[in-house]
Design a protein around this nucleic acid. Structure first.
Length: 951
DNA sequence: GGGTTCTAGATTTTT
DNA sequence: TCTAGAACCC
């Protein structure tokens, strides 16, 4: 028979002992009496390197401490405890993700048969999230996807849902788990052979669920220090190696898996229900009677494991499957000694006594489980012997743990304890009749209605039936049409509906052209169109550049060769040098010429001519040429114009505020008589002036396309009224009589929050604290210090952090990663290594305000609201245009649906200069009633704790 | 040619 | 302050 503890942690995990290295784990395992020990934390690169250095393979998939290291430590092991200790490679992963409208937090224990498999796994995980800053990494990955990934990497993986009943971080957790294992792991459930029951539950509790009968119930310590090793463990009748363990777990008929060593579940931190702040401990029946509310403060109770088991149980208490493994309930030796000596478990006396017992009798588990009472009496006195006898017999007094508070197991009555105190260990205990253990409450759980299966998102009203303004825009025919559509008013929807309606009316889909600026937008449009009306599939959806290329392809008889960025620079850089210009300036000058169609004079004309000659020599066009040349040819070449100007009967253009003159010129060429143009956009969201977009073209639409009708969308479906009010106040700084005041369709929601922090690091820290709070805490310390966290149910992908410059991302990313939050920084060049699961991983998005355009998030942070940063004041250059920067901030604010957090630093180092910037002038004059100014707590630790769950 | 030192410059971004 | 590219040195 061997004893195995498969789930532990290294010193690289949060809140773990610094002494957790392979040597001391090995030593502790020997003192405990363990034969097989999980390495823990194999996802952590530094820990894995240490394991590879210090462990050597022995049996199949098992490892031993290097002999030279073991030799050095042999002296430190009591002679009675010397035994071989094998390691297996194990790790734990915390998945935090949203499924079915609820935030899920599920921990999983994973074992792998060799280092190569671990490395394959880590390579994949490393692309999906941050596995370096915590030994137990937090990933925004669905548990089912994690299991799929593990199986893909190594079919022999042993995947065990960890401590399945803890409320905050487990498969069945009351706060963020599931009601059935299949709900969590879907059709991969069959690959799971074992479930870890955790400290707060024991096998009889688990036996009450028939659905768990087919699983092996394992128990591990989840130790965060060497001393806690083996506080729960497994008994196995097999060789101490990987395949033998796998077989023992999988084979429910055989007896490879003999049973478990358990905590008294009452001692676990989440056994009963309660509210720690108020000191309220409740049984499941009491909780029901109290309606799930704390009888003292009325706040929500943390529902413990016992309640949760009853809720899901389909067998009465005491019932179980026909075949079940045995188990023994133990109290850790230091606690037994603490009782026998009536002094704290960590006191010198207890520590010394334990050492002496180990020397004389053997490992801790032997002492607790097997040592004859006579030997115990001889080595440790009769009180100790009696204490151990009672423990083995289950004659204990318990105060159940609740809401993160460990329970207390007592081996002696108060009177006996008084006696021990008075007489010391010399007092000999009479065996007294004593009350049995606190009985488990015997009421039966009511099967709760599982109402929240597959929560449907509220139906989008604009999709179901259009509001009057939208309907007008969709149905208008006969003239060009310009629609002004503010953020969240259903702009794309109107465009898509309009196209679909036209198809319905009998227009061939090939006669409809939809034009966007980016391929991404085009793809989205295509998708939405297909979803709305399959018959509209043949509608042409493309970008301006794609359209230009197509026209040129026809004109030239072959697709034009287009200079990519690299080729273009290869021409521009030497040219700029010859001309004594900066390459960037020259590039800007040239692109400006092409986009505005302005015929330059003087020096610029020469530059352009020289550049065009170089392009011609290479037989290349640049990207600007795709639009410009297509437009010019359409205007000049009659045959080409004939082919194109009537090809489309309807042309719909998105984001019209971003067009440049070349694009309008192209549109006009395309739209001969009888062709109707629809343009939709929002001049308040024009943020690309710097790259040639000319928002005055929005206003000029009616003269470019005579007879145009104008309309505006009014209802905003995206943002709460408070967010909208702030954004509107901001944009009002740039008066525009034709602006439509939006009408919020959502109600309620908190005011936006503004906080001014000492520096960018503190600012990032503030953001990270808020994010952790919105996620309801990502580690147990957080949920235990602030368990009243409102059930906000935000997932990481519901949250975005926006900023003006990429340079701001570093501090924000670091703070979020330190907090354990999965993040994704939208970099200019996408990371080369992407994982197939990448698109499914849920992460907080870090984006520039520009990159956020067109997106929406339930929660938005906007960081760095400082003068100099917004509007941006580049060194040695003219400051960015105030109104365009105002629109940029407007775009940023209007990305938010429910919650908006604004912040800025009082001190910021930008390009080497340390500045003490003022608040951005864009926000200075806003009415104070539009937002809540939050005070920054000066000492960081306080800020962390208090800021956590404040809103 | 390869390595070191110096110095200017430093947004936002799509095709 | 950091970095990329140029200038410089052997």
């Amino acid at each position: 028979m061997i004893v195995a503890d498969l789930h532990i942690h290294s010193r690289y995990s949060r809140a773990t002992a610094r002494s957790l290295d392979p040597e001391r784990l090995w030593l502790a395992a020997r003192r405990k009496g363990l034969d097989l020990l999980g390495s823990g934390d194999f996802t952590h690169p530094a820990w894995l390197a240490e394991l590879k250095e210090k462990l050597v393979p022995t049996e199949d998939g098992a490892f031993e401490l290097r002999t030279d290291l073991a030799a050095c430590l042999d002296d430190e092991t009591p002679a009675t405890c010397r035994r071989p200790v094998r390691f297996l490679l194990s790790g734990e992963i915390s998945c935090i993700y949203k499924r079915g409208g609820r935030t899920r937090k599920v921990h999983s224990l994973i074992l792998m048969p060799d280092f190569a498999a671990v490395e394959r796994l880590n390579a994949r995980l490393g692309r999906l999230g941050n596995i370096v800053s915590d030994g137990r990494p937090i990933l925004g990955l669905d548990s089912q996807d994690l299991l799929a990934l593990c199986l893909e990497v190594e079919p022999r993986v042993i995947f065990i849902p960890a401590h399945i009943w803890t409320p905050w971080f487990s498969l069945f957790g009351s706060k963020s788990g599931f009601d059935a294992i299949e709900e969590c792991f879907g059709d991969l459930t069959g690959h799971i052979q074992a479930l870890e029951t955790g400290l707060s539950s024991d096998p009889p509790m688990n036996w009450r669920l028939r659905s768990l009968d087919r699983f092996t119930l394992v128990s591990n310590s989840d130790a965060h220090s060497p001393g806690n090793l083996a506080r729960e463990a497994n008994l196995l009748n097999c060789e101490p190696n990987y395949p033998a363990l796998a077989l023992a777990l999988a084979d429910r008929q055989g007896n490879g898996f003999a049973g478990t060593l358990e905590f008294f579940p009452d001692e676990g931190k989440y056994h009963l229900d309660g509210h720690r702040k108020c000191g309220m401990r409740l049984t499941p029946a009491e909780t029901r009677a109290a309606g799930g509310r704390c009888p003292v403060c009325g706040g929500p109770l943390t529902v413990g494991v016992l309640s949760r088991v009853e809720e899901l149980a389909d067998r009465p208490p005491g019932a179980g499957p026909e075949v079940a493994r045995s188990f023994e309930s133990l109290v850790p030796l230091d606690e037994v000694l603490s009782e026998a000596m009536q002094r704290g478990p960590a006191t010198k006396g207890v520590v010394a006594a334990r050492g002496e017992l180990l020397e004389r009798l053997g490992p801790e588990l032997y002492i607790l489980r097997q040592a004859p009472l006579a030997d115990l009496e001889q080595a440790g006195g009769s009180v100790l012997a009696e204490a151990v006898r009672r423990m083995r017999a289950g004659e204990v007094w318990v105060e159940g743990g609740y809401d993160g508070q460990f329970g207390v197991v007592r081996l002696f009555s108060p009177a006996e304890r008084q006696k021990i105190k008075g007489q010391g260990a010399f007092w000999s205990l009479a065996r007294e009749a004593r009350p049995g253990p606190t009985p488990a409450p015997a009421d039966h759980a009511q099967g709760r209605a599982r109402a929240e299966a597959a929560l449907l998102r509220p139906l989008d009203p604009a999709l179901e039936d259009l509001n009057p303004e939208q309907a007008r825009a969709v149905e208008h025919r006969g003239t060009p049409l310009l629609v002004r559509a503010g953020p969240g008013t259903g702009k794309t929807r109107v465009l898509v509906q309009r196209a679909a309606r036209m198809v319905e009316e009998g227009l061939e889909p090939e006669r409809i052209l939809m034009v966007t600026f980016t391929r991404k937008a085009a793809a989205e449009m295509r998708e939405r169109l297909a979803a709305l009306a399959p018959s509209a599939e043949a509608v042409r959806v493309t970008t301006f550049h794609g359209l230009g290329r197509e026209i040129l392809t026809q004109a030239l008889g072959a697709p034009p060769a287009v200079a990519d960025e690299e080729a273009r620079l290869a021409l521009i850089v030497p040219l700029a040098r010859d001309l004594g210009l900066k390459p960037g300036d020259l590039a800007q000058q040239l692109t400006r010429c092409k986009q505005t169609l302005m015929l330059p004079d003087g020096a610029v004309a020469e530059h352009l001519a020289a550049y065009e000659a170089l392009l011609a020599k290479e037989g290349l066009l640049d990207l600007d040429d795709l639009v410009r040349q297509a437009a010019m040819r359409l205007h000049r070449e009659q045959e080409l114009a004939r082919a194109w100007s009537g090809r489309f009967g309807q042309v719909l253009v998105d984001e019209y505020q971003d067009v440049n003159p070349a694009q309008v010129y192209l549109l006009r060429a395309l739209c001969g008589p009888g062709v109707e143009v629809t343009a939709i956009g929002d001049p308040d969201q024009a943020i690309y002036g710097f790259r040639g977009a000319d928002r005055s073209l929005f206003r000029a639409f009616a003269s470019d396309f005579p007879g145009a009708a104008r309309m505006g969308l009014i209802d905003n479906y995206r943002s709460g009224p408070a967010i909208l009010a702030l954004a509107q106040a901001l944009i009002a700084g740039d008066p525009d009589p034709s602006r439509v005041i939006p009408r919020p369709r959502l109600t309620g929601g908190p005011l936006p929050v503004l906080c001014e922090l000492a520096n960018p690091e503190a600012e990032a820290e503030w953001v990270a604290d808020k994010v952790v709070g919105l996620l309801g805490g990502v580690d147990s310390r957080q949920v235990e210090t602030a368990p009243e966290a409102a059930p906000l149910n935000y997932g990481a992908s519901d949250i975005a952090v926006l900023y003006r410059l990429h340079a701001q991302a570093t501090a924000l990313r670091e703070a979020l990663e330190r907090a354990g939050v999965p993040v994704q920084v939208a970099a200019r060049e996408p990371l080369a290594e992407t994982d197939p699961l990448d698109f499914k991983a849920q992460r907080v998005s870090l984006l520039t305000m520009h990159a956020a355009k067109g997106l929406e998030f339930p929660v938005v942070f906007v960081a760095g609201l400082e003068e100099g940063l917004l509007p941006y004041q580049p060194p040695q250059r003219p400051p960015a245009d105030l109104d365009e920067e105002r629109r940029l901030l407007f775009v940023a604010l209007t990305r938010a649906k429910d919650r908006l957090y604004l912040c800025r630093a009082r001190q910021r180092a930008l390009f080497g200069h340390s500045l003490r910037p003022a608040l951005t002038p864009l926000m200075r004059d806003l009415a104070s009633s539009l937002l809540i100014r939050e005070k920054a707590d000066a000492p960081r630790r306080r800020a962390r704790q208090l800021g956590l769950f404040a809103t």
